[in-house]
């Protein structure tokens, strides 16, 4: 297991991993590619339907509430906070992986806890946002169309329900990924805390969880762009 790689060795000639990674990481990379196609299909569907519609609700109008404060004049403030939280949790994940490289159990535990907190915070924000939109009359198959509705099309015409349909389906699917990620991270935390990785001699599992977590973050950047900015 532990000889150094001789110089000039052929990586592809068999008997070793061509990328010098164990199979689990390879599987994770391919899984993420697969998952990227799932999200890609959703977002392209969204794009095609939206492109084919005459008009569409204006995100600056829809997303302008903030918990407690209520209606704000700065649109997108809340989602910026959510995005910031998620990106910060990616940073703490990087720190956890680095700590894993150094076989620093304490560090791994500390940063995993922060990552989990970040994930939970993001999910809570999403729960609040969903509730808020729901209370304003948006849900799968529903959208408020009265004169004061936030969901009127940018050109003030009556919207179809497809804004809600895509919003809840895609952010829901992403939220489900974040949720799974939090579960995975909690399992990793428990394993690290019990010293399983020290026994194994490496923290590769943390790296794999990290790959997944960064991917979920990356997807959010696209989801965020598609629903809030465009």
């Amino acid at each position: 297991m532990s000889q150094a790689v001789p110089a000039g060795q052929k990586w592809w000639s068999g008997g070793k991993s061509p990328y010098n990674v164990e199979y689990g990481k390879l599987m994770m990379w391919f899984f993420l590619m697969s998952d990227a196609f799932t999200f890609g299909a959703f977002l392209i569907s969204y794009g095609s339907i939206r492109f084919a519609s005459n008009s569409w609700p204006d995100p600056n109008h829809v997303f302008r509430n903030f918990p407690i404060i209520g209606e704000m004049n700065i649109p997108l403030a809340f989602v910026s906070l959510m995005t910031f939280i998620l990106i910060m949790s990616s940073v703490t994940m990087v720190l956890a992986v680095t700590a894993g490289h150094n076989n620093d159990r304490k560090g791994v535990i500390k940063w995993m806890i922060w990552t989990i907190i970040g994930g939970l915070a993001f999910l809570s924000c999403q729960a609040w946002e969903w509730t808020n939109l729901y209370s304003e009359g948006a849900w799968w198959g529903k959208i408020a169309t009265d004169a004061g509705s936030h969901f009127l099309n940018a050109d003030r015409t009556v919207p179809t329900t497809n804004f809600s349909n895509f919003f809840f389906t895609i952010t829901g699917f992403h939220g489900f990924h974040v949720f799974s990620g939090v579960i995975i991270n909690i399992i990793m935390l428990i394993k690290a805390w019990r010293g399983d990785f020290d026994k194994r001699g490496h923290y590769l599992m943390i790296e794999k969880a990290g790959l997944y977590w960064h991917f979920v973050d990356l997807v959010w950047v696209f989801v965020f762009t598609c629903f809030y900015l465009l």
């Binding site: 052929k10 592809w12 068999g14 008997g15 061509p18 990328y19 199979y23 390879l26 599987m27 391919f30």
Partner: peptide, 18 residues
């Protein structure tokens, strides 16, 4: 599929180049 891919890439015996 994930298994087949990573097995073929990673687990070839010595000398079994692609």
């Amino acid at each position: 599929g994930l298994n087949y891919i990573s097995t073929i890439l990673n687990m070839r015996t010595k000398g079994m180049s692609m």
